[in-house]
Design a protein around this nucleic acid. Structure first.
Lengths: 233, 233
DNA sequence: GAGTGGTCTAGACCACTGT
DNA sequence: CAGTGGTCTAGACCACTCC
């Protein structure tokens, strides 16, 4: 059983991982520098750099200039999380996507939403409530606030006909933002909308997006019972 | 107002994002190829390649050989999720970490755990239950199964003295695996352990790890009420 | 100050895929 | 087949930071 030759940066990465797995290198160890590894592997330093850089960004290695590269001692693993548009997620499951607007009003948001969007207390925003359906069954309850100061044209859109998220994706410049995952107990309203018993533990995503011109939207998504979000380690 | 000059791959990336934000390029658009962009920006093609590659891996662009590079139409955004060791997470909050082993037995796991670990139904695994504490208050309830076939030395460890996760990190080769996030209602046992009312909606992480020698461990983490997991978009 | 990683360049070849 | 991205190379310079 001979190991596969080291080919390309993925080969280098695989060989590094093999040495960790074989305990040739253990957490905390300093490993050779890029130039030495390049010589060992018979490749250019840039190739080693790419492999080690990737491993560092997944939390397997820790790198510091001058100090060198170490096997992470108490690794904070980083996972890539895919956050699909709901329509895609549902269609990827082989289901039929549906969308129903429940309400669309203008109102002053509660304090927590004001804070997330960095707007003054009395300001009037667009408030949408909608439900996303999988094969006609409630899948996600969406409660969204849109900042009309940043995005006045949102006031003219018929969100009964157009999914708010998809309208935003197509009509708003690049978004930065943050996202939080948590759990809640279904309120009576959420239970009614999602068709589950009140108090049921539900998975929640809170997401805020901003553009260079200011905060855009804060959305609170409550998923139907049984929802699981998956990621690879 | 002059824009910053394009310096390095981060500069190229910023300029691409600016053009998307300014709607010079809109979702679905084909953008120039790497060679042309390199000429526009006055840099090497490799620099453009790195910038575009990064944007593609965060879901902003879609690239295919021969077909070129497009602004993603219905972008599946990818976020980096940091999954710290619990001790670190608690200490990063400025709290004091504590750990209590509740039970440590050998037993045949329930069917769902068998499936996740790919072990036969009757096989005996190590079953740990523990609670992680923040400033003495329950923070996470951990229910873990360890595959003794893959990891016989785990049978000798005193997990009352050593946190299982940290022992595994230090003593087991590199791990791959998957991770799932969901919500549950506190069982009476979980409520007692976490000090909350029964039925409370709780955030859950299920994690399975494997090595090249076989599956290692399946862990079910139930977080105390109010827990939020954060990520950057 | 010296050693390390981080990045850039110019050129080359390869791999994939649409036409 | 031709055009595109994907990768590799050899060399260079820079930025950071430990000693």
């Amino acid at each position: 059983m001979t190991s596969a030759p080291v080919r390309g940066w993925q080969g280098v990465q695989a060989e590094i991982l093999r040495r960790i797995a074989a305990q040739e290198w253990v957490p905390g160890d300093l490993i050779p520098n890029e130039a030495d590894l390049a010589e060992q592997f018979g490749c250019a330093r840039a190739t080693v750099n790419r492999a080690l850089g990737n491993l560092a960004s997944s939390g397997i290695l820790e790198r510091r200039r001058k100090a060198g590269t170490r096997i992470a001692a108490l690794p904070t693993r980083r996972a890539m999380l895919s956050i699909p548009v709901l329509r895609r997620e549902i269609e990827a499951r082989g289901g039929k996507y549906g969308y129903t607007l429940l309400s669309c009003t203008r109102a002053a948001p509660p304090p927590d939403v004001c804070a997330r969007l960095a707007v003054a207390g009395g300001e009037v925003l667009l408030h949408l409530q909608a439900v996303h359906l999988l094969d006609g069954q409630p899948y996600v309850f969406e409660d969204r606030w849109i900042n009309l100061a940043t995005l006045p044209q949102a006031g003219e859109v018929d969100f009964a006909a157009v999914n708010a998220n998809e309208w935003l994706v197509g009509n708003v410049p690049f978004e930065a933002g943050d996202i939080a995952f948590s759990a809640t107990n279904a309120s009576s309203e959420e239970a009614r909308i999602l068709g589950c018993e009140e108090g049921r533990g539900l998975f929640v995503i809170d997401r805020t997006t901003r553009s260079s011109r200011g905060s855009i939207t804060a959305v609170h998504l409550v998923f139907a019972p049984g929802y699981r979000m998956l990621a690879e380690l």
